[in-house]
């Protein structure tokens, strides 16, 4: 798969959807294309996060450590971006991500990500928009949960 195709994949991710093609290519060029085997761990909960991953092909499980053992909280697939929280706000990884099938991913390291954001403000705006949407979504969920409790 070439840079051109990777740029196409990046375009399908909402975070990057509005970036112009040259920027998407730059993002693809500066990221590393990695293959994981089924069962291989992308990163562990509690580790220091230095990169985010975009799944190009395959699926991964997101699990959280609990006193009674790990619990799978989500399964993510193609076009998903994972691990971005750790690089945005310097917290340890909040979950463990394991490849469920053979997995192809683009790995963007933190430094590069920040440099891109500083260099291209439209990327920062897109990220803000995405985060605001996520916040709104969790607020809605919270409201729904509170309403369900009261009702």
């Amino acid at each position: 798969m070439s840079l051109q195709e990777e740029a196409e994949i990046l375009r399908r991710i909402p975070l990057f959807a509005k970036l112009e093609p040259a920027k998407l290519k730059l993002l693809a060029f500066t990221s590393r294309r990695l293959a994981f085997e089924a069962g291989q761990v992308l990163f562990n909960q509690g580790e220091f996060g230095d990169s985010a991953y975009i799944i190009v092909d395959g699926a991964a499980e997101v699990s959280i450590e609990t006193p009674s053992g790990p619990i799978v909280v989500a399964t993510v697939g193609r076009n998903a971006i994972i691990g971005e929280i750790a690089i945005l706000c310097d917290v340890p990884r909040t979950a463990t991500v394991t490849a469920k099938t053979a997995l192809q991913a683009l790995r963007i390291d933190k430094e590069t990500f920040f440099r891109l954001v500083t260099e291209f403000p439209q990327m920062a705006v897109e990220i803000m928009r995405e985060l605001a949407q996520r916040l709104e979504k969790s607020n809605q969920q919270l409201r729904a949960a509170v309403a369900a409790r009261q009702g």
Partner: peptide, 20 residues
């Protein structure tokens, strides 16, 4: 052509460029 396109908007000597 590709390099010119990708790095067009970055100032000369930008770290990203140096690195990659």
């Amino acid at each position: 052509a590709t390099m010119t396109e990708i790095f067009a908007d970055l100032p000369a000597g930008h770290e990203l460029f140096e690195q990659y």
